[in-house]
Amino acid sequence: MRWTHYLAIGTLSLTLAACTTSPTGRSQLTLVSDAQLNQMGAQAFEQYQQDLPAANAAAQRYAQCVADALVAELPDNQRDQNWQIRVFESEQANAFALPGGYMGVNTGLLEVAENQDQLAAVVAHEIAHVLARHANERVSTETATKMGLSVLSSASGLQGAGGQQLMGALGLGAQYGILLPFSRSHESEADVIGLQLMADAGFDPRASLALWENMSAAGGGQPPAWMSTHPSHGQRIGGLQAQMDSALARYQQAGQRPSCARP
Rank of each mutant, 00 (worst) to 15 (best):
R2D: 08
W3E: 02
H5W: 08
A8V: 01
G10L: 10
G10D: 05
L12Y: 00
S13H: 00
T15P: 00
T20G: 10
S22G: 10
P23W: 01
P23A: 05
G25T: 11
S27H: 01
T30Y: 05
V32L: 02
M40D: 11
A44S: 14
Q49L: 15
Q50S: 11
D51S: 12
A54R: 14
A55L: 13
A55N: 14
A55T: 12
A57F: 08
A57G: 04
A58D: 14
Y62F: 14
C65L: 12
D68S: 11
D68Y: 06
V71E: 06
D76P: 01
D76E: 09
Q78I: 05
Q84F: 06
R86A: 09
V87M: 03
E91Q: 14
A93I: 05
N94K: 10
A95T: 05
A97M: 06
L98N: 00
P99E: 01
G100L: 06
G100C: 04
G100T: 12
Y102T: 04
G104T: 11
V105K: 03
G108N: 07
L109H: 09
L109M: 15
L110E: 04
A113S: 08
Q116D: 12
A121K: 08
A121T: 06
A124N: 12
E126W: 03
A128K: 10
R138W: 05
R138S: 04
T141I: 11
E142G: 05
T143Y: 05
A144E: 12
A144W: 08
K146I: 04
G148F: 04
L149F: 10
L149W: 06
Q159L: 09
Q159C: 02
G162W: 11
G162K: 15
L166A: 15
L170F: 13
Q175E: 15
Q175D: 08
Y176I: 15
L179N: 06
P181Q: 06
S183M: 14
R184G: 13
A190D: 07
V192I: 15
F203A: 15
P205H: 13
L209H: 02
L209K: 05
L211K: 02
W212R: 02
G219W: 13
Q222Y: 09
Q222V: 03
P224Q: 06
M227G: 01
T229H: 00
P231E: 07
G234R: 00
R236P: 02
R236G: 09
G238R: 04
G238Y: 00
G239I: 04
Q241G: 01
Q241I: 03
A242D: 10
Q243N: 12
M244S: 14
D245A: 12
A254E: 05
G255Q: 07
G255T: 09
G255C: 07
R257I: 13
C260A: 07
